[in-house]
């Protein structure tokens, strides 16, 4: 999708909230929008999601879109699963598919016990899970998240991180605003800041106050003389050893996708080792305590052992701080 010279103001003669915004959203890309309060982030998201039309400028090539608002008031006369099935049908799904996916997403977010609860009796967090499930069950080409993590419990946040990575892996685009600068910081493809109603693209930088998330190192052996496959998820840094072993380092959020890409490459690669990467500690910050996951031992997904126990996800955002500097390539 492309935005060309987009401007938006409310009411004729009102001040411009956005002006002269040019933006091209990459397929399979994760885009973060930053900006101080009241700078027009939400306005931009509403234009991106197709809720509002820009006052001037064009939006071209709109894909199938889904939106998750920050606060989802549940004053609707439906049960959670009834609402999700109806939204699935509005997204263009058949009834049976919508029902299956609604149940699946409620389960993934740990809200399956509430599928028959009326929406106006749901807690704030469970309402937010329904709002997130509504968007994910549509498997949209463009997913717009306006602080969608707010109000979710920790497992649900992790699950949403993972779902975002899956959407990107499937070729979708995800645009998000979040108050936590570390949110998906390691997996970002592009970062923009809204300043004075305009959009400033920042490359090679993490959001203010963010540190790169944990990384995963994968050692793989390919067919003799083979180059690593193109377009690997997470844009991993890699080096080839003298024995033909390839060592790849990628954000932990993308490690599952990266493994899948290597295993399903033609010809496939053989995985020899997967472990949490030791963060590169810059000299100036070397006095910081050693991050916990550096000594966590070889785990298949680079998570700290207490992260989750069912082994069903690999998003692996760990709470322990790391000080790796990453340069975004996009």
């Amino acid at each position: 999708m492309k935005l060309r010279n987009v401007g938006r103001r409310y009411g004729r003669g009102g001040p411009w909230v956005l002006r002269g915004v040019d933006l091209e959203l990459p397929a399979g890309g994760l885009v973060r929008i930053d900006g101080a309060n009241g700078t027009g982030k939400s306005t931009l998201l509403r234009v991106l999601a197709g809720i509002d039309r820009p006052t001037e400028g064009q939006v071209a090539d709109r894909p199938r879109t889904a939106f998750v608002p920050e606060r989802f008031p549940a004053a609707l006369p439906f049960t959670a699963s009834d609402y999700l099935v109806r939204l699935g049908r509005i997204h263009g799904l058949r009834g049976t598919v919508a029902r299956e996916r609604a149940a699946g997403w409620l389960e993934r977010f740990g809200a399956e016990a509430h599928d028959r609860t009326p929406m106006d009796e749901l807690s704030k967090g469970t309402s937010q899970k329904v709002a997130v499930a509504q968007a994910l069950l549509a498997e949209p080409e463009l997913l717009v998240l306006d602080e969608a993590w707010t109000g979710l419990d920790v497992p649900a946040r992790t699950e949403l991180d993972l779902a975002v990575a899956e959407r990107i892996e499937a070729g979708g685009t995800v645009v998000f605003v979040d108050h936590d600068p570390r949110r998906l910081a390691g997996a970002l493809d592009e970062l923009y800041t809204v300043v004075d109603g305009g959009l400033v693209r920042r490359t090679g930088a993490l959001p203010d106050g963010a540190e790169a998330g944990p990384e995963t190192r994968i050692v793989a052996v390919g067919p003799p003389g083979a180059e690593p496959p193109d377009g690997l998820p997470g844009v991993p840094a890699y080096e080839t050893g003298p024995d033909g072993r390839l060592t790849l380092t990628a954000p932990a959020e993308r490690s599952d996708a990266l493994l899948r890409a290597l295993l399903t490459a033609r010809p496939p690669w053989h995985i020899e080792e997967v472990r949490a990467a030791l963060p590169v500690v810059p000299a100036a910050r070397a006095v910081l305590p050693e991050p916990a996951q550096g000594s966590a031992g070889p785990r298949a997904d680079g998570r700290s052992p207490d992260d989750r126990s069912d082994g069903s996800d690999g998003s692996g955002r760990s709470a322990s701080p790391t000080t790796t500097t990453r340069h975004l390539t996009s």
Binding site: R46, A49, G50, I51, T65, A66, F67, V68, P69, E70, R71, F72, P73, L76, L87, I90, H91, A131, Q134, A135, A138, V144
Partner: peptide, 10 residues
């Protein structure tokens, strides 16, 4: 918010 969700979808 529910309206915005539907508007994005349709």
């Amino acid at each position: 918010a529910a309206r915005a969700v539907v508007a994005a979808a349709s």
